[in-house]
Write a protein that binds this DNA or RNA. Sequence first.
RNA 1: GGGCCGUUAGCUCAAUUGGCAGAGCAACUGACUCUUAAUCAGUAGGUUGGAGGUUCGAUUCCUCCACGGCUCACCA
Length: 518
Amino acid sequence: MKLPVEENPLYLQRVAKLGEIRSRGTDPYPRKFDYTHSLPQLVAEMGSLDSAALEQRQDQAVRACGRIVAMRGFGKACFLQLAEGGARLQVYVKKDQVPAEDFELLGMLDVGDFIGVDGPLFRTKTQELTVLVKKMTLLSKGLLPLPEKWHGLTDVELRYRQRYLDLVVNPEVRNTFVVRSRVIQELRRFLDARRYIEVETPMMHPIAGGATARPFKTFHNALGMPFFLRIAPELYLKRLIVGGLERVYEINRNFRNEGVSTQHNPEFTMLEFYQAYSDFRDLMALTEEMLTGLAETITGSRTVSYCGHTISFDSWRRFRLKEAICHFWDEKCGTAPVEEDLADAGKLERLLRSCRIEPPKDSSAGQLLGLLFETVVEEHLIQPTFIFDYPVELSPLSKKCPDDPSTVERFELYIGGFEIANAYSELNDPMDQFARFEEQVRSRGRGDDEAHEMDEDYVRALAYGMPPTAGEGIGIDRLVMILTDSRSIRDVILFPHLRPEQGRSTEAAEPVEEKPHA
RNA sequence: GGGCCGUUAGCUCAAUUGGCAGAGCAACUGACUCUUAAUCAGUAGGUUGGAGGUUCGAUUCCUCCACGGCUCACCA
């Protein structure tokens, strides 16, 4: 294989060093290294010992390893900084303390190489914990230079494309993904402790349902049929409720064939959970408990800083959707409406126009209401806020409010100005569900290609009986954004989708049609 | 998809009105056995994202293309 970088002089220099190392009989890529301590372990266990205490245990050498991230040479001595496990430790190689061949090897090392060291710990005169190296082993030779140590890697395109470099050079990036892992771990723990079981449902769906979104299409050759990558696991999870798994959750990817932005990635991670014998108000309480505890466990505080705002998980607010529009109305757009105005399509259109939004044609009152909400309210919802009582047109899978059939028992949770969670009392009346699907199909016929398709098996499942159930989806990526103060969803996804680099596009660059070929 | 902005050495960034393409770090050579972005002296490193155009002359002005960022639309 021809590396694309082989004309790079820095690369060629290192290849020359590699040859020199081999010619001396040293394997630059040995098998393993048995270390006595990870670097975080050393820092934790020895970080508080003073010089005298370290002197006492001087005959107890440690074996540690890591990537060289800094080298400072002094002719007959050299300080190196190793990075491993998210920690860094200094090691000191002195000519009169190591075998001659080890000191010669030092001259062939570069920042980026991996080494292992043996030796006692001591403190330098500036009190830095340091390994006094008695034996040094090359563990892996790097051939390309790492980005600069001081400014790090800031070009976002390179950071996303070559995330491995971003992780090596920018420690806060590593932390973001450690936090992400802990968030998921904590959510599992929270739900497991409440008698939930974790399940895995199909990612390939014959009918893309459970959300309003355009799906990705693929094709199964042997079955000779198209599939959609799932846009939501919802309909499968509720089938499990029908089957008697009263509390289920799933954490996995959804795929939506929509635009990308700082808040949208084509594949994103969602926690969905369903709890029988409960309604959406129970989930509001559960969500409050879950996320407050999560913030506290992850960040050590109920207050987090996000994009210059201070978000407090002690001040949860609740507004009905119409109430929120009246409450957050900007007087610059005219006199604030009263809730009664928000039921009439004509009045809603006038209100939208006064906000300089041209209402789309053929929209129902519910759709206009949703649009008005996004326009007027969304940006104000920095503190954790539940918005509830949604129009039925926007919620084909939710149960209607008993006293108002135009409204459903549904809430969305907003934090930091965007939607984090969406929950409702699940519609379990099979005949009502069938009618709502029919309405969606009519809507599709009018050109709304995000409207639901009819899912007959799902209706059949409901017809066998589903207990009253509440369900919720929480966007994990966005939640992690809030907890790590990340402005873009790409900063919490290890490999966000980008176009291929120029000249390196894949063979599958042309659009894949779902036509079968034998 | 639309609008705006960006792309210069391995990395981070300069370059006046269109006039020899530069610095810091990294690298290389040398000095240096407690440094912390080590220091000092020296050396090398470029098809200025790509293709055209205007011009005596283009990193700079124009057109097209590629990729990215922000934003709007769509959505979660």
